[in-house]
């Protein structure tokens, strides 16, 4: 069966003719829309590497059917920086050496962006650790991750709302 879905990814509109309802949001991004920044670590919601924002909320894209995302606004790691200017979470991750191999990093960063939006952690490292626990880092960069999220959270609290880019449109067949 073929399904037409329309979704905004990183501010750009995609009209996708989906020839298979089995396609997950993660595989849509990686295999059909040339957005491989989002990573597959377990494909079962057990590691967090595939975390993206859907309508501003962090979710595991491996457990979301693409078909079900019709009309959604999605932000992936590729859509976070404004041109050359890194998102504060991205910059903080580099500064605090919050990754090693880098494979879980897109998910960690998207999760951190979601966490800061949720506003439930404040400046409490223990709350950050708990609320970042859905993102496994096998290299063990947790100390840097916690520091980076705290720092980015502090900056977000100090600064104004982040702005979003101008949407343009495009068509994709997938």
């Amino acid at each position: 069966m073929s399904l037409s879905i329309s979704l905004a990814i990183n501010g750009r509109q995609h009209d996708v003719a989906l020839n298979d309802p089995r396609v997950t949001l993660l595989d849509l991004l990686r295999e059909r829309l040339d957005l491989p920044g989002t990573k597959k670590g377990c494909d079962r919601g057990q590691c967090g590497a595939c975390t993206v924002l859907v309508d501003g909320r962090r979710i595991n894209s491996c457990l979301a059917l693409a078909a079900s995302m019709d009309g959604a606004e999605i932000t992936t790691i590729e859509g976070l920086a404004e041109g050359d200017e890194l998102h504060p979470v991205q910059a903080a991750f580099i500064e605090h050496d919050a990754f090693q191999c880098g494979y879980c990093t897109p998910g960690q960063i998207m999760s951190a962006v979601g966490l800061i939006k949720e506003g439930m952690a404040g400046d409490d490292p223990e709350r950050v650790r708990e609320l970042m626990s859905g993102n496994i880092c096998r290299c063990g960069a947790y100390q840097g991750i916690t520091e980076a999220v705290l720092e980015a959270g502090r900056k977000a609290a100090e600064n104004a709302q982040p702005q979003t880019g101008n949407p343009d449109t495009g068509k994709d067949a997938a």
């Binding site: 919601g45 967090g48 975390t51 909320r57 962090r58 979710i59 595991n60 457990l63 979301a64 999760s111 979601g114 966490l115 949720e118 609320l131 970042m132 626990s133 859905g134 993102n135």
Partner: peptide, 9 residues
């Protein structure tokens, strides 16, 4: 339960 991502979905 679960993780923040899973609870969001």
């Amino acid at each position: 339960g679960a993780s923040a991502q899973l609870r969001n979905a």
